[in-house]
């Protein structure tokens, strides 16, 4: 399936944009500007980055309904894979930089610490979605592909719970993410989702 050139450029732009935060954090670590605990700096940024990308991914469908621009669906798989990549790096940072590759400690955490368990479950879901995101898997799974990928909503819930359980004293940041997540879920309610295209057209006309 040939893609129009502007879609290819758009995909490339998204690719570069998704690399920017990661490079920025690594640059900070490299020049020693990430504070006395660079591993934790990467860990927290990657975790929040993964959640941010997950919310971006989930905003594509409502945006497409609103604007009917195909560009949004053209980057959905890519953003989903970026979400998984950031989440995977987040987990690896925990294992490498916080636990110092102490597998026993990881095993204990996976049995005892609810926030670790919940985070690990979310990562397993993201992994399953990532490996079934290619065309071959789509063909093999057929009708089962779509229900499988609805698990993204479960992952979102688990990630928010994971985040909530590490908050110590201030819920401001968490509440912002949770509010956006809630908004994106509401936009999927049939009553609202159906109205999005009409709303989009009205907005377009108003602008003209």
């Amino acid at each position: 399936m040939a893609q129009p050139r502007h879609i290819l450029v758009w995909r490339l732009l998204v690719f570069v944009a998704a690399l920017v935060p990661l490079s920025w954090w690594m640059f900070h670590v490299a020049i020693g500007a990430a504070g006395p605990e660079p591993g934790r700096y990467l860990l927290l940024n990657l975790g929040q980055g993964a959640l941010f990308l997950l919310l971006c991914t989930l905003s594509l469908t409502p945006l497409m309904r609103l604007t009917r621009w195909k560009g949004f669906s053209a980057i959905r798989r890519q953003l989903g894979l970026w979400t998984f990549s950031y989440a995977l790096l987040h987990m690896l940072s925990y294992l490498l930089f916080i636990l110092g590759l102490n597998w026993t400690a990881l095993g204990e955490d996976l049995q005892k610490r609810p926030y670790v368990i919940v985070g690990a479950l979310a990562l397993v879901i993201l992994l399953a979605l990532a490996v079934t995101s290619n065309r071959y898997a789509m063909r093999r799974l057929g009708k089962r592909w779509k229900p499988l990928h609805k698990w993204i909503y479960a992952a979102l819930g688990l990630v928010l719970l994971h985040f909530l359980w590490v908050v110590r004293a201030d819920l401001a940041e968490w509440s912002t993410y949770a509010a956006v997540a809630l908004g994106l879920m509401l936009l999927r309610l049939p009553g609202i989702a159906q109205r999005l295209p009409r709303l989009g057209e009205r907005l377009k006309r108003a602008r003209v």
Binding site: E37, F97, G100, A105, K112, V166
Partner: peptide, 23 residues
């Protein structure tokens, strides 16, 4: 006695670096 959310058996002596968490 662990904190319910994490272990207190070890600590990271700061500053540390990426591949030497100084546990």
């Amino acid at each position: 006695v662990d904190h319910p959310r994490w272990s207190q058996a070890t600590e990271r002596r700061l500053p540390n670096s990426l591949f030497n968490p100084n546990v």
